[in-house]
Amino acid sequence: MNTINLVLCGLGGQGILFMTKALSQAAIQKGYDVMGAETHGMAQRGGSVVSHLRLGDVQGSLVLPGSAQLVLALEENEGYKNLPFVAPAGRLFVNTSSPAFPNKKVKDYLDAKGIQCRGVPASSIAIAMGTPMSSNLALLGYFSASANDPFSHEDLRLVIQQISPDRLKEKNLMVFDAGFDRGMEEKKTLKA
């Protein structure tokens, strides 16, 4: 089994740890060995926060730059900062509503490396659902629309259900579903 490397990034307070938990939970349920690294402490007060997640037979918790098949970013600049982690032909999902995304220089790089990049209006989706702090769930939902092995939409949804605290369960699933719907729509238009 080859190692699968993921990087999740954003700012302290955006719920990166929750996203990490959801993805690692989904992976362990698929029988993967999971190793990951989290940011705690000072940076959680609004600084840059990164989680690394590695599936397979590994001992180190950090991803070597250039080897992450998937990077999920909850903030545009943090997404750019973590660009070096994306492997050639990897995938990058960034929470942004900016029509200018991705930046021209970045785009050239992405094309050169065959990286698939999506700007996802996760914050807008979360705000529209009345839960501005849940862009993490919107992004996860969006990603689930085109998730590939070992993740699938159904598994991720189930995990959200399992790990959300009772008082947030319903809301969390709503935002996740809204993100998923948007992901499906765009998948269709991309195909069309």
């Binding site: 990490t20 690692s24 362990i28 993967y32 060995d33 999971v34 190793m35 990951g36 690294a37 989290e38 940011t39 705690h40 997640l53 180190g60 918790s61 950090l62």
Partner: peptide
């Protein structure tokens, strides 16, 4: 990186 690593 051990304290704040996560492992199954």
């Amino acid at each position: 990186r051990v304290c704040h690593a996560r492992q199954s």
